[in-house]
Design a protein around this nucleic acid. Structure first.
Length: 457
RNA sequence: CGGGGAGUAGCGCAGCCUGGUAGCGCACGUGCUUUGGGUGCAUGGGGUCGCAGGUUCAAAUCCUGUCUCCCCGACCA
């Protein structure tokens, strides 16, 4: 469908709209001064301290308003890029019938990671760890002719994998939010085009999230071939070692007017032309060959795309009639992004001793407005006006109107990690000035209060 | 699933060895104080010591069992 690229820019998304403004005195934001003892890695600690999540049981979390807000933002960027690539959103259930998995043969194979449950009639059900069977069933039932092919479908849904050992907070939970897309094609060549679309969409998605993500050759599973890549985000605290030709870091991200119907192979070829491997697949000989071109870093896996041919379509009978009237088993691929895990990855990649440093695209609010002297008539008036103006201009603002001391407010705002802090205090106010701090760089500058709106619009 | 550690106030911890009915810091309430990087003083509230048995006149403390959480490893988005 050639329309797919054009639709996304003004895509209304009412159910995902987020409120623009919030007063801290009214916000449910339970921040912690001290580190909870159970949290080991920095993203877990900061998510707990910044009041984003609370643990319910091992690997299962509640999302508090601040955390949910970031989750929604990430989800929305993922959604926009999937839509742009021509992938269509649907929503499949979390609970699936066991029969579906018996058909594919995975019901017995999957093991204890699959949470199995029974309904009141004793019918075997399961909490989906993934959705290949479910989507295959849908396409099988609804598509009979090559004329309705190809199709790319995705959903963003909670999954459950009963990990033996959940850890690292949200990064390795049992319950997690995932975008999974599935492609259906008549032949391998067509399937490869779908794969390339997702490849490009992934590059764009991670870039928009403020991340350096690098595609790396991954295990090809049962099919073989070269259509399988993992996307690793570079972060010092990453779980796996990565070895990358350093020029990969400077490769160009496809722009937002990429034509997804054009031949994307050159982009994919470019991005896979230089050496990039996780430590598991690292080839020692490449190390010598690359010399000082080689970057040895650490990474977090945040996405995986792969082609698996007829692995599910065949056993489940998902066939379509081709031009000759023959029944053909569909060529399939699946494309995952760990949405909730991405929050952890972003924090791992972007924080300092003071707390989180949100990239602007996913920051819960753009501006933290700090009233240094709540209760002071002039400070209150100046802040109220700014707050209203920002609000009217659609600038997301969290207004710290509490009676805390200055130091407490600064530290708390640093912890939360909003990109900009606008500080109003009696001292600057006398001259009509505010202090603006860039959270990422730490730079502070004095700006006239009446110019703030222009700066942030 | 193998190996290790921990459950005492919302959070971080002490007390346990050598039983006598619970304490410190932060947070919270109140009053004063202070006000540009987590003020200071005073005062107050809050805990079936994970749970269940057992030993004992008496158990946070000793014994047995059990549940949960965390860490290392194997596995994974």
């Amino acid at each position: 469908m050639p329309l797919c690229g054009a639709l996304t820019k003004v895509r209304p998304n009412h159910f995902n709209d987020l409120s623009i403004a919030m007063r801290l005195s009214q916000y449910f934001l339970p921040t912690l001064k001290e580190n909870p003892s159970e949290a080991q890695i920095v993203s877990h600690r900061l998510m707990l301290r910044a009041g984003m999540i609370r643990q319910s049981s091992a690997g299962i979390y509640s999302w508090l308003p601040m955390g949910l807000r970031v989750l929604r933002k990430i989800e929305q960027i993922v959604r926009e890029e999937q839509d742009r690539a021509g992938c269509q959103e649907l929503l499949m259930p979390t609970i699936q019938p066991a029969e579906l998995w018996q058909q594919s043969g995975r019901y017995d194979d999957y093991g204890k990671e699959m949470l199995r449950i029974q309904d009141r009639h004793g019918r075997d059900m399961l909490y989906g760890p993934t959705n290949e069977e479910q989507i295959t069933e849908i396409v099988k039932s609804e598509i009979q002719s090559y004329k309705d092919m190809p199709k790319m479908l995705y959903h963003i849904q909670w999954k459950f994998r009963d990990e033996v050992r959940p850890r690292f907070g949200i990064m390795r939970g049992r319950e997690f939010l995932m975008k999974d897309a599935y492609s259906f094609d008549m032949d391998y060549e067509s399937s490869k085009r779908a794969y390339n679309k997702m490849f490009v969409a992934y590059l764009r998605t991670y870039d928009r999230l403020g991340l350096k993500a690098i595609p790396m050759r991954a295990d090809t599973g049962p099919i073989g071939g070269d259509l399988s890549h993992e996307f690793l985000v570079l972060a010092e605290t990453g779980e796996s070692g990565v070895f990358v030709h350093k020029d990969v870091l400077d490769f160009e991200i496809p722009s937002d007017d990429v034509d997804y119907e054009s031949d994307l192979q050159p982009i994919v070829d470019k991005w896979t032309s230089l050496y990039a491997a996780t430590d598991e697949k690292h080839d020692e000989s490449a190390e010598a060959e690359l010399g000082d071109q080689l970057l040895n870093a650490r990474g977090i896996e945040v996405g995986h795309i792969f082609h698996f041919g007829t692995k599910y379509s065949e056993p489940m009978g998902a066939t379509v009639t081709d031009q000759n009237g023959d029944e053909v088993a569909l060529q399939m691929g699946s494309y995952g992004i760990g949405v909730s895990r991405l929050i952890g990855a972003i924090i791992e990649a972007s924080h300092d001793d003071g707390g989180i440093i949100w990239p602007e695209s996913v920051a819960p609010y753009k501006i933290g407005l700090i009233n240094l002297k709540s209760g002071d008539a002039d400070c209150d008036a100046a802040c109220d006006k700014l707050y209203k103006d920002f609000n009217a201009a659609g600038i997301e603002t969290l207004y710290d109107d509490t009676a805390e001391r200055a130091g407490a407010k600064f530290n708390n705002m640093d912890l939360i990690g909003l990109p900009w802090q606008v500080v109003i205090g009696p001292r600057g106010l006398k001259n009509g000035m505010a202090e603006v701090k860039n959270r990422a760089t730490g730079e502070k500058e004095e700006i006239a209060i009446d110019q703030l709106l222009a700066k942030f619009s």
